[in-house]
Amino acid sequence: MLQIQNLHAGYGKVEVLHGISVEVPQGKVVTLIGSNGAGKTTTMRSVSGMIRPMSGNITLNGKNITGLASNKITRAGLAHSPEGRRVFSTLSVTDNLLLGAFPRLTFGRERGDVQGDLKRVFDLFPRLKEREAQLAGTLSGGEQQMLAMGRALMLNPDVLLLDEPSMGLAPLLVKEVFRIIRELKARGITMLLVEQFAAAALDVADYGYVLENGRISVHGPAEQLKNDPAVKAAYLGAAH
């Protein structure tokens, strides 16, 4: 579904990713784990067009999307719930969700049942339903995270990118977020999940890639990675 080949990317002259390749098959959940500064978010940003890759190839559904503007990539069917949530703080919860369906409401993507999807998102996140008229800026961190995820779902995406959905959340909410990811997986949504919480991410994912200093150091089925000592070392350094 989503293929990343030999991706080099960074900011200005600084290269952060030194050629990584990741594959996300239809209906599967793939996770990208690694410590701070390893290049996880840079990968996500290159895929969704927030930054222009230096070189490499990214295809979505067989269509080459490398270097396209992010609005075009979104219309091609890729939704990205970005790091830091980035909800539209002066708009209401409902408006934020409707903007997630912007291509469906305007042009470029099949309209389908937007109102029905809105209801389904509210079913998935009852907390958002309670706050539907509230401005997104007044939500708590956890609610904003749910809003960001719900907003991305409103696209009816072919692939969903979740960047650090657990970042800055209290443990109870982290649990809730992972419950929802599991729920989405059960619905057959293809996902690329970036996480710092490696154990939890590997629990939900089918396949995992470990990113270290801009390179893939280890990859394999999630079950297998869980017990790989290299994964722990990538975070906390080898024991002394």
């Binding site: 410590s35 657990s166 443990p171 982290v174 649990k175 977020v177 992972f178 996480e195 710092q196 919480f197 490696a198 154990a199 939890a200 991410a201 629990d203 722990k232 975070y235 906390l236 350094g237 024991a239 002394h240």
Partner: peptide
């Protein structure tokens, strides 16, 4: 610090979500 349970959990998420 390296062997502190809280730290490992903060970094790896431990079993919090499991």
């Amino acid at each position: 610090v390296q062997s502190d349970e809280k730290v490992i959990e903060a970094y790896l998420g431990g079993s919090a979500a499991a």
